[in-house]
Design a protein around this nucleic acid. Sequence first.
DNA 1: CAGTATCCAAAATGATACTG
DNA 2: CAGTATCATTTTGGATACTG
Lengths: 120, 120
Amino acid sequence: MFHTECSARRLLDHVTSRWGIWVLLRLHERQPLRFYELRDRIGGISEKMLSQTLRNLVEDGLVWREVEPATPPKVAYGLTPLGGGLCAHLAAMLDWIEDNADNADRTGDQAPSEGALPSA
Amino acid sequence: MFHTECSARRLLDHVTSRWGIWVLLRLHERQPLRFYELRDRIGGISEKMLSQTLRNLVEDGLVWREVEPATPPKVAYGLTPLGGGLCAHLAAMLDWIEDNADNADRTGDQAPSEGALPSA
DNA sequence: CAGTATCCAAAATGATACTG
DNA sequence: CAGTATCATTTTGGATACTG
């Protein structure tokens, strides 16, 4: 299923792309956000990549885009219900990673029996 | 936190790398698996990438590696408890994506309220 | 402001051949 | 079998300049 050229696969690719996950997470924290607000909050992202990532996410139906016709233009982005649903999973996973990552990056060693210990 | 050079960040990078997610998921379906078994089940992965991906995941403590000294060598891989915990999140997210992806890849249209329906 | 277009650098990936 | 080494290619990412 995920080996085909289906929308599920494309969506996964976009989410796991270099910036996709961060765009989604920033919008999950706070929305709507304007283009430059996203750029500033993410930090390190080029305009090209932000633009490209946003376009992908909008196409996938995870993010909405609203243009307020004015000069200068005002464009806002936010999460669609679909994007919100995905972010729930994403945020949960990221939280879990934060909590557990250092827990075991030794080369597969057995329990160190000292140092930072789990609940036991 | 995730903007630093921490183990959480490295772990995330490895998981979201081109093949990381698939290696984990195959092992989640069935373990242990030998090197060539993983290669065959994943499909399309080169030996170089499989080797590299596995090394990363082992270093991160998500996957274990066991060598049975023999000629020819037998090497088995499986998920550590940490890897299992991550795979729970991963599998849940992937399931969700499968279920919801086609649901809305129109350019941000409102609820189609018809067409391919969920469980109904 | 919110992008796009272009060009360049860097990194990821792949195919192949080789080794213990 | 289970990799590693090497090289070529593809993809990705970034800096910059330009436009509506």
